[in-house]
Design a protein around this nucleic acid. Sequence first.
DNA 1: ACGGTGATTGATACAATATAACATTGCGAT
DNA 2: ATCGCAATGTTATATTGTATCAATCACCGT
Lengths: 178, 178
Amino acid sequence: MSSRLRTAGPFPGPDHDHAACVTRGLDAAEARCAEAGARLTPLRKRVLELLLAEGHRAVGAYDLLDRLADTDDGGKRPAPPAVYRALDFLVDQGLAHRLASVNAFIGCAWPDAAHRPQFLICRDCRAVAELDGGGLARNLDAAAEAAGFTLLDAVVEVGGLCPRCRPDETSDPDAASA
Amino acid sequence: MSSRLRTAGPFPGPDHDHAACVTRGLDAAEARCAEAGARLTPLRKRVLELLLAEGHRAVGAYDLLDRLADTDDGGKRPAPPAVYRALDFLVDQGLAHRLASVNAFIGCAWPDAAHRPQFLICRDCRAVAELDGGGLARNLDAAAEAAGFTLLDAVVEVGGLCPRCRPDETSDPDAASA
DNA sequence: ACGGTGATTGATACAATATAACATTGCGAT
DNA sequence: ATCGCAATGTTATATTGTATCAATCACCGT
């Protein structure tokens, strides 16, 4: 029996106060947009909220469209461009990230600071851990510089199995050896 | 005074002996498949040849389909699954790489050795430099380990401008220090 | 050579992801 | 009010990738 999963790191446990994550992310978004003179419109804010509400999991653009329809009073589902434009805005503002290796998006875990993110993405459950890639980013900067290459974007995404999906979990032996 | 520099790095100059790259890649592929007991069938070999012939540029799957039609005697264009299956095979064998950030593929530059590649991808011309990511890979291993994450695949792709496409007009590329 | 077996390819249809192009709406400044 | 611009709505389509099943080919043991 798993008593307390400290999640020993960047993967939040299922028991963490996720509502606080959502609130914090939305508040940070408001502040950031105000500072940047950008408009966090209702649509953009709702898309961000849906991203954050997903609970640190990657969400596809079309899943977002479905959720928008579900949470809309009239049940009207926007057309794809609406959500893609909102996502572009959020990514530009650093409030969300695009996960190229899985064609999906995720709300930013640290919307306050400029950062060079890298991601651990679970193949099973699509859980995503966002790490700060400081040292690694410097490594990439150096490599680009050495090659005469002007770096614009760095995509660092690691696919694998998160702590809750990896089979060598010691806390649940009954399903093992299956 | 020759402005025809050797590209001082991983981006091959336009004057390099590219036919040798293609031949070398195909030879290495033959050897590697023989060793692995895998079958480098005519279709797979042709796809690899087209990838290599592209000259260190990213190629999309549908571009490959067009080229297959062009180089086919009957001009018959295969259906998408044919080329995707060939690409899957080549990627599995380490003879080609998938570039997730641009939905494209590239022939492996170093098909001989097991490696943990990382890529510099030009946004303008789609030129690709494949680097060996030794130190960076260890960095990712450590991060995954610390998070209790089982690493299966690492995607490291840097988008930007290659030496021939960067607007940098003068010959002073070293002043930058980020 | 013969037939069985699994890998490979062909062929059809479709799913999933993303964008182009243009119309409409809202909103602030003049 | 109305002009200008950003944002959103709308329609259609482009691009990328798979599911499925049929046909064919290579290999292997006999």
